[in-house]
Design a protein around this nucleic acid. Structure first.
Ligand code: FES
Ligand code: FES
Lengths: 162, 162
DNA sequence: AGACATGAAACTTTCATTGTTGCGTGATCG
DNA sequence: CGATCACGCAACAATGAAAGTTTCATGTCT
């Protein structure tokens, strides 16, 4: 089951760009998420258009957040990567002349659209900052040590500082 | 976006087996849904195991309902075809050592599982009979003629009677 | 000028679903 | 019985979209 990984990957990258480094190149990001720089650019181009990210060329260039994580919802990210189909099941597009088939498909699509609407509403209510913050809280709690230094240390697993 | 068409197709077939013919061969069904008989058997094998359908070999053999449509929910059908992944987006299975990535993926999966749970609950509350009945009602209304003969006529578009 | 980094287009790879072929088994008909 | 019909099952080929890759152009900093 090969799912669309862009949303998951983008969220990781966005948090990285807020918590670890203020700017990173496509190559660095590609190494981070085990893919390649062109895929990174393709994926992040949509976020640039929506003014979630800024990219700069040349020396010291790379990618950088255009606004704080609490101003970026999961829905924003989802739409920025092109609103890929959320569902794997649905009706086929080969129209026959059977009215029953059309009716069944229409009804099924309705249910899926309803589910999609609800899921996107949830997404609109969760900011990327929420994700990052929740993790830090939970991690600190697990450590039995509530100070933030410990939580932040968890981020230092991957050397990306220049 | 090539979705999984099995659920949609199976629903169509089930209604057909209740409203049009009491029994149909894989070849006939394949012609009906524009695919081929082996695909039909593969798809319907799961329904046989769940005792939704019965198949018989030899002359006059073929597929037949094992219980009435009102005793078959969308959820039953979905599970019978193997519970294929409902969603197209999700987290990848390539585990790195970044805790943030793991946390983001876990959170995303949680949201998806919640949505899946809700959708399956809806599915469990809709029977295949509901789908067929709703269609007949709606079709009759559209015809400006509320008698069932008119609605039933809509089913006769495809000659499958033997 | 040279090195760095993104932008964009074209091409290849990957992989799950679907489609296909072939053979075996059981059931009905004559 | 033998022939035909129809499913059961396994193995293989085709399809198509996402991911990966290559290549060249453009812009930026030293
Ligand atoms: S957040 Fe995972 S590498 Fe920085
Ligand atoms: S219901 Fe569509 S062909 Fe019978």
């Amino acid at each position: 089951m090969p799912r669309d990984l862009r949303l998951s990957r983008m969220l990781h990258v966005l948090i990285h760009l807020d918590r670890h480094v203020e700017r990173a190149t496509s190559d660095q990001i590609a190494g981070m998420i085990s893919t390649n720089p062109v895929v990174v650019r393709r994926m992040m181009a949509g976020l640039r258009k929506k003014e979630i990210l800024i990219s700069e060329k040349g020396h010291g260039g790379g990618w950088q957040l255009a606004r704080p994580l609490n101003a970026i919802s999961l829905r924003d990210v989802y739409q920025a990567i092109g609103s890929p189909p959320l569902f794997n099941i649905g009706s086929g597009a080969d129209p026959t002349d059977c009215l029953v088939e059309k009716a069944v498909d229409a009804r099924l699509d309705l249910a899926m659209q309803e589910a999609e609407r609800k899921l996107l509403k949830q997404f609109s209510e969760i900011s990327v900052e929420d994700l990052a913050h929740d993790f830090e809280q939970r991690f600190a709690a697990l450590q039995g040590d509530a100070d933030e230094a410990s939580a932040n240390a968890a981020f230092k697993h991957f050397r990306t500082d220049g």
